[in-house]
Computed example of a mutant assay.
Amino acid sequence: MSGLVLRGVGAGYGPMRVLEEIDLEVAVGERVGLVGLNGHGKTTLLRAVMGMAGWCDGERSWRGRSIARTAPHELARRGLILMPQGDAVFPGLSVRDNLESGAYLPAAWRRRAARRRRVLDLFPKLVPHLDQPAGTLSGGERRMLSVGRGLMADGELYLVDEPSLGLAPGIATGLVRALMSLELENGAMVIAEQNRSLLGGVDRIVRLHAGRIAEELPAAAAAVAEGR
Score class of each variant (00 low, 15 high):
S2N: 15
R7H: 12
V9A: 03
V9Y: 05
G10E: 07
Y13N: 01
Y13H: 04
G14T: 07
M16L: 15
I22H: 01
L24W: 07
V26C: 06
A27T: 05
E30K: 03
E30W: 02
E30L: 04
V32N: 01
G33E: 02
V35F: 00
G36T: 03
N38Q: 00
G39T: 14
K42L: 03
T43I: 04
T44E: 04
L45P: 01
L45E: 03
M50V: 10
G51Y: 07
W55E: 11
G58M: 04
S61Q: 14
S61I: 09
W62E: 12
S66G: 15
A68V: 13
R69K: 12
A71F: 09
P72G: 06
H73L: 08
R77F: 04
R77T: 12
I81R: 08
I81C: 14
G86H: 13
L93G: 00
V95M: 00
R96P: 03
D97M: 00
E100Y: 13
S101D: 09
G102L: 08
G102N: 07
L105S: 14
L105I: 12
A107G: 11
A107C: 05
R110K: 14
A113Y: 10
A113M: 11
R115K: 15
R115C: 07
R116S: 13
L120G: 15
L122V: 07
F123L: 12
P124S: 03
K125P: 03
V127C: 08
P128I: 01
D131L: 00
D131R: 00
P133S: 05
T136Y: 01
L137M: 04
L137Q: 08
E141N: 10
R142E: 10
R143F: 02
M144E: 13
L145N: 02
G150N: 06
L151C: 04
L151Q: 05
A153Y: 04
A153C: 09
D154V: 05
D154C: 06
D154L: 05
Y158A: 05
L159F: 07
E162K: 03
P163R: 01
L167I: 01
P169M: 08
G170R: 08
T173F: 10
T173I: 06
V176T: 04
N186C: 06
N186A: 13
A188T: 11
A192Q: 09
A192N: 11
A192E: 14
S197P: 01
V202N: 09
D203E: 05
D203I: 07
R204E: 13
R207M: 11
L208Y: 02
L208V: 02
A210M: 15
A210F: 14
G211A: 08
R212H: 09
A214W: 11
E216N: 07
L217C: 12
L217I: 13
A220R: 14
A221K: 10
A222C: 12
A223K: 11
G227K: 13
R228Y: 12
